[in-house]
Write a protein that binds this DNA or RNA. Sequence first.
DNA 1: GTTACGCATGGCATCGATAACATAGGCTCC
DNA 2: GGAGCCTATGTTATCGATGCCATGCGTAAC
Lengths: 339, 339
Amino acid sequence: MTEGTARLRQPSMADVARTAGVSAQTVSRALRGSPNVNPETRRRVLAAVEQVGYRFNSAARALSSGRSHTIGLVLLASGGYYSRSAVTAGVEAAAGEAGYAVSIATIAALDTGLMERSLSKLADQGVDGFVIAVPLISVTRKMEDITRDIPTVTLDGSRTAGARVLGIDQQEAGRVATQHLLDLGHRQVWHISGPDEWIEARQRRQGWQECLAAAGIEAPPPLEGDWSPDSGKRQGQIIAMIPEVTAVFAASDEMAFGVIRALHERGRSVPDDVSIVSVDDIALAAYCSPPLTTVRQDFYRYGQAAVALLLQGDEADVDESVATASLSVRASTAPPRSR
Amino acid sequence: MTEGTARLRQPSMADVARTAGVSAQTVSRALRGSPNVNPETRRRVLAAVEQVGYRFNSAARALSSGRSHTIGLVLLASGGYYSRSAVTAGVEAAAGEAGYAVSIATIAALDTGLMERSLSKLADQGVDGFVIAVPLISVTRKMEDITRDIPTVTLDGSRTAGARVLGIDQQEAGRVATQHLLDLGHRQVWHISGPDEWIEARQRRQGWQECLAAAGIEAPPPLEGDWSPDSGKRQGQIIAMIPEVTAVFAASDEMAFGVIRALHERGRSVPDDVSIVSVDDIALAAYCSPPLTTVRQDFYRYGQAAVALLLQGDEADVDESVATASLSVRASTAPPRSR
DNA sequence: GTTACGCATGGCATCGATAACATAGGCTCC
DNA sequence: GGAGCCTATGTTATCGATGCCATGCGTAAC
């Protein structure tokens, strides 16, 4: 209420210091929780902060300390919006709790040049760490240079210089999904994979192949989608024309939506005629018709865990279950119709 | 290939200046595209930048210029992941193009305190502008203080000091959806609204009420969900028990998924028994069973347009169509079964 | 009764880019 | 031919917090 002084400039630490009757240095220490500050002094400083309406200037801090307290998050525009959204939320929650900001960069397509540019952009912003939620197809020299200097966690099974990797074993996911169908009595399992540039896609496909091989079944040719429901629908139309197909493993929930749509349009019932398993367990998976049986991935936790790894280093206690592929069994799978 | 000098520190403008044989100031001018730089000098500077591997330090720039070239994006964790994801992508694309970074803050729930804290956090980071994709229920003094100093665009129909507002007319959306059902011959339209704290939810409900009133129909009591598919399912179970319901307007696609699931489980067919319209047109809407008729919102464009407004001010040419409610007619609506 | 050490605090240089101001040369115009 | 101006460039101070070192004081140790 004692307003009236025209304030041309945000108050700085010097202003706080003056008001509290200490030096700016002490203000800095008090605010950062240095142990060597008299409790009484700290109290005075905090009061002064309140009084002058001080807000700290992160640019100045970043410049003088060399650390920006910012984490850079790299996302792919085309990679399934649920996972993007959930990873982002997880990263932001964990980062925010630790006093870190999150700066994002979205790349429009899986392209090395775009990737390099995004990393550079974030590096220029001075981020203290990277969370890369994009498959690194080919790691270029430039990308290595950047990620060598800045701690990096990748969420997609690919590795680069010094980067830690997080996420479920995608090959295991492929096995679990396929085995579930075999256990139900299906004699053959078709696969609609993600784009081959994606490491996850390749790994899931491998898991599927291995699982079939272990059962002595020759794998049918895989169909390739691009993660979009539309691509799932297109491949689903092909599936629908092959009467002998009774079980399909789709590499993502969103593609599974498309597959189911195509099958319905062709008059084939899920799961009576064809069973479908996929991967992700997005929020809408349980509300598909029929509800999807799917291998769960907890993207929010991925995001949280990635930040924990970045900030706490290797000794971060990342919950084991983050890396465990578990199946959410719902109604899109059933034993094959006996004939 | 001429490596060998141990580099302890990132090269700075001074290093570039030395290499190019000019002053640091000239380097700064050359890099920022100031008109008063000799083309030949600029060339030399750029060559030197390349040679020493210079990357500019945004903290220093932010400190000395007072502008961070960062836009703060405020999201709500619980508000539908598709819209969040798409808005984020749009904001980031437009910001990136203009050389701006995007820093995000997610609030866990619609709470004034959380909102204040998020805004403060971003303000402390020194963002040059806000894009707020969260309804501002009650605008507190503190929030006003912040948004008075920093340009703000809101994407939810609420207004605060000096903020510009962007988005389709939600009331119109409610009218369009309802009218579509009436036009098909339905005599009554039920509504599953979003949470009452959301301005969009209130506006859509009003549109629905008005439309019914204009047709001389007394509106049934609205059912309230929380945007989640699960809440849609719960309300759908109620709907399913009321035989006379033939048409439902759900306030979001995700709730519509839940409603449809509930109806299917009770053996009621969509659209034969019950027609459903919703709002958003998320990527999966066309892959619902049946495909959803829904009022389209282009969240990506919202994001882009918001940034354009921030950076270019009022004279930004924001495409009119951003604000037009258009209906994507698919298969979840049909004339009522004649009886 | 020194020595030594820990604690609380202050002084000063520093981070890297930019704003504001200064300067030098070349050109136009009366 | 000098006043005035525009262009290209350099000099210096500055932004605000922090790192490093110095200082003074109290207390435990020898």
